[in-house]
């Protein structure tokens, strides 16, 4: 008899995923990935190598290893994407009209694409020493 069962019923209730659902999932995923990505980056660049020792020679040397390029690409995609989506949410704290929110969202999207593209081109293109 179901009335004395002690496990909660599991039901399906699928609301069609919206842009916001996807962005929340992205924030969760990128948030988890950022923990190793950022800490390894900070440990390497700020502690082990040191910011004053980073020059074109160092960048050329580290990008000679494909895995570091993939790493930097992941850092760019997840850290910057995470930050820009966060910025979109914060912008909605201050822009309350729908049209202003839309303009801000587009401006942030364009900014995100341009800067990610520049970063991506730099990582793929690598360092051409004079």
């Amino acid at each position: 008899m179901s009335a004395i069962s002690s496990t909660p019923t599991v039901r399906k209730a699928a609301a069609p995923p919206t842009f916001e659902t996807r962005m929340w999932q992205f924030m969760r995923l990128s948030g988890v990935l950022l923990i190793p990505l950022v800490w390894i980056h900070v440990a390497l660049k700020d502690v082990i190598v040191g910011v004053h020792a980073i020059d074109l020679n160092y960048v050329q040397k580290i990008w000679a290893i494909t895995a570091w390029r993939v790493y930097d690409m992941a850092l760019l995609a997840f850290a910057f994407g995470h930050g820009m989506n966060g910025l979109r949410h914060v912008a909605n704290d201050y822009f309350h009209s729908k049209s202003a929110q839309k303009i801000m969202a587009w401006a942030i999207l364009i900014g995100w694409i341009v800067i990610t593209a520049i970063g991506g081109i730099a990582i793929i293109g690598g360092v051409n020493m004079p």
């Binding site: 209730a13 699928a14 609301a15 069609p16 995923p17 919206t18 916001e20 659902t21 962005m23 929340w24 949410h89 909605n92």
Partner: peptide, 14 residues
């Protein structure tokens, strides 16, 4: 489902 749909917006649960 209807309630989840209402909350599945930026000014909803997100």
């Amino acid at each position: 489902e209807e309630r989840l749909k209402i909350l599945n917006e930026q000014m909803g649960v997100w």
